[in-house]
Structure formats: C-alpha cells, structure tokens
Nucleic acid binder design. Structure first.
Lengths: 123, 123
DNA sequence: CCGAATCCTCTTAGATACTG
DNA sequence: CAGTATCTAAGAGGATTCGG
C-alpha cells in the first residue's frame, strides 16, 4: 500500500482550526457569547480591527454557521445584532481547552493568568 | 472602569492557535510523532508542500520549542532527523480534542471518519 | 539528502473615503 | 449605525536554481 498523503485542508483538524484561526475569530466568538453583540460594541472592544476586517470576519463566521446576523432597524440609524448559533456555542468548550493548554505551557507564571473569562465582568 | 480591549496575540488562545495553525503544522506534529522523522519522508507524505515551506515550518516549530533537529551525518549525503520535544508531544491531546470536535461538527457522516490516527498503520 | 537563495504571485490587512 | 468601495502595502506560499 502506498504511504498516505496528508493535507490539512482535507482533515477535520485543519477544518476546525480554520474556524478559529485568524487574529480575531476567537475573540469575536467570546465577545458575542457575552452579549457584546453589536457591530459598534465589537469595535470598541477590538480597537485595532478595522471596520472592513471586522465585517469580513463576521461574514465568514456567518457563512461557516458560527454566528447569525439580525437587522432590527433597517432604516437609519441601523441596528444590527449578532448572536451565536449552536455550532458557534459548541466551540466554547474547545476554546477553553486551548486556553488551558496555553496557560499551562506558554505563560511564565500560570498563577498570574488573566483569562478572557475573568475580565469581562469588571466593566 | 474602561471596557476591556482584546487582541488575540496577547491571549493564550491566540498564542496556542498560532502554534498549530498554518496549513502543515498539525500534520508535521502528527507525522513526526509517528517516526516520520526525516526531511525526505515528510515530503513524501506531504507532496503538495514545497521544500522551502517545509523548511520554514520546521524552523518555526523548532523556534517555538515543539520539535528538535539532529544532524547525524553532516557530510554528504546528509542525514537529518526530527523529533518532538515534550512541549510538542503535549500538544497531541489538544489536537485530539480539536479532531474530535471536527468529526462531530463538520462531517456529514461522522461514522465514516477517517482519522489521521487510523490510516498510519496500513502502509 | 537537505537545504539556502531568488524571484514571482496571490491573498490579507490597513488606510481612507463614501453611503442607506 | 453599520457597513461598501478602492487603493496600497506586506507577507505567505510556490517554482526554480544552486550548493555542501
């Protein structure tokens, strides 16, 4: 038998990583899950992202079935809300695993971790 | 208090995803872990990767402390071996989690999964 | 055998200005 | 408010060639 050939894109690992890689997607998932669900609110939390890129990421995640978009006032000024699909929600556990691995293996002092999970309540 | 600002690169999630995103890194980790540990052997398993990119990925992973490189014959023809560090090995569990999420959430028919883990023995 | 060095292309990202 | 449109800059990735 021939030696098996590999390509990440044809593998569940690669496909899954695609969903959450990119500079902003894990953050967007996290924020939307915590009801930071407006375009403008998302921008305030990610000042370094441009409107264009934020739009692109949101569209991609919509196409991937991770979030949904809802226009509540279609006239001016517009009101658009985002929320997670079930699929998007289910990524949360996985991201937690990734987070924990990072805490253990990447930080110099894991006890001083500042989890995304820990900061959201202090606003 | 100000609303917290986010940037993936300053978060353990982003840093961890960086280690395993990129088209080839999960595969390289997987192959090296299964003693496909020569440059040429890796190329055979990933025919679509160029020598340049394979070299780059291996160097990156070396710098990230995931693999180590050993030259056993420094003259011609050269023999170079790669093997996982402990840190690289420890990623295995995480990648399994990612794999399983993908199987459940991305495949049309999860029962017909062809895991990276299942094909390696048939050569 | 295992690369390094070039060159080239193609995708992403950022900046800026405009719009329903 | 929540985008689009356009342009440009940067970088990742491929093809090819050369070398110890």
């Amino acid at each position: 038998m021939e030696a098996k050939e590999y390509d990440t894109y044809s593998c569940p690992v690669g496909k899954t990583i695609e969903l959450i890689s990119g500079r902003w997607k894990p953050i967007i998932l996290y924020l939307v899950q915590h009801d930071i669900n407006r375009f403008g609110l998302l921008q305030k939390r990610m000042p370094k992202i441009s409107r264009k890129v934020l739009t692109e990421q949101l569209r991609e995640m919509e196409n991937q079935g991770l979030i949904e978009r809802e226009i509540r006032v279609s006239s001016y000024p517009q009101e658009v809300f985002y929320f997670l699909t079930e699929k998007g929600s289910s990524l949360r556990g996985l991201i937690d695993q990734i987070f924990n691995w990072g805490i253990v293996n990447l930080l110099d002092d894991p006890s001083r971790k500042r989890a995304m999970d820990l900061v959201i309540d202090h606003n």
